[in-house]
């Protein structure tokens, strides 16, 4: 600033330039805001207003994260989380994955890994924890890790509602950890409804439904529909579940699928 020449003409010119910069600033605002709104709709830039993250990373890390270093900072933290996992430092894994997912809320992989570490790895470790002699407390710890995994997946889905992968993982979590077949079926079905979902999602949704007390009829119809869809769907599990339901629902013999007569 001190390098400016303080001469009337120069001063006048500086003021003029500043005025031009500000006028341009006003001109650019609508464009910037329109893009910002669109980014928001697409679930981009999820980190900018996250005050939690600012506390977690500190002011400097936060600014670095926002200054074009976001994905790299996330990667570094992800690798740290990987190391922490190898050392089975579960609380550190949790903390790092919270930061990673906050920095890169659009990365399916990070949500998926976070949930997997919590619900599948940490929960098992908690159950086998030799330092905790009371079973009730071990079970409690295990349940808490299930909940943490579920929480990661639910937040991941909120940030990426159009991707099938996290719905599928959540369905697996309900199926394998909570034994909640109704919820599992629901999320497999949600995954199946999204573009880019693998073909098996629909089958899995129907399988899960077939375990639900009171919904056998609905499950039967869905499985039958899949069976009728063609050879590709007639996998061993599908046939087993269908036969099980035919038995349970007392389906008329002539409407049952043929025995091994494919």
């Amino acid at each position: 600033m001190m390098r400016f020449a303080y001469h009337a003409a120069a001063l006048r010119r500086s003021v003029l330039v500043l005025a031009m910069v500000l006028a341009f600033g006003v001109m650019k605002l609508p464009g910037e805001r329109a893009l910002f709104v669109q980014h928001r709709q697409l679930h981009f830039r999820g980190v900018e207003f996250n005050l939690d993250l600012r506390e977690q990373l500190g002011q400097l890390g936060f600014i670095a994260a926002l200054s074009g270093f976001r994905s790299i900072v996330a990667d570094v933290l992800f690798i740290q989380a990987h190391v922490a996992w190898e050392r089975t430092e579960w609380s550190r894994v949790l903390l790092l994955f919270r930061q990673v997912t906050t920095l890169q809320p659009r990365a399916i992989l990070f949500w998926d890994m976070a949930a997997w570490h919590m619900a599948w790895n940490a929960s098992v470790a908690a159950m086998n924890d030799r330092t905790q002699p009371r079973l009730a407390l071990r079970v409690k710890a295990q349940r808490e890790y299930f909940a943490l995994g579920k929480d990661f997946l639910e937040r991941g889905i909120k940030n990426n509602p159009e991707k099938p992968q996290l719905y599928e993982t959540l369905a697996r979590l309900y199926k394998e950890k909570y034994k909640d077949h109704a919820s599992a079926s629901e999320f497999f079905a949600k995954a199946a409804a999204l573009p880019g979902a693998p073909g098996y999602e629909k089958r899995f949704a129907a399988y899960e439904l077939s375990y639900c007390e009171g919904r056998e009829r609905e499950a039967y119809q869905r499985l039958r529909q899949l069976y009728d869809a063609g050879e590709n769907e007639r996998l061993p599990t599908l046939i087993t579940r269908l036969k099980f339901l035919e038995q349970k629902l007392n389906i008329a013999q002539d409407q049952r699928i043929p025995d091994e007569g494919r």
Partner: peptide
């Protein structure tokens, strides 16, 4: 020529 402020 204006003289830059700091040099004055």
């Amino acid at each position: 020529f204006p003289v830059p402020f700091h040099r004055q």
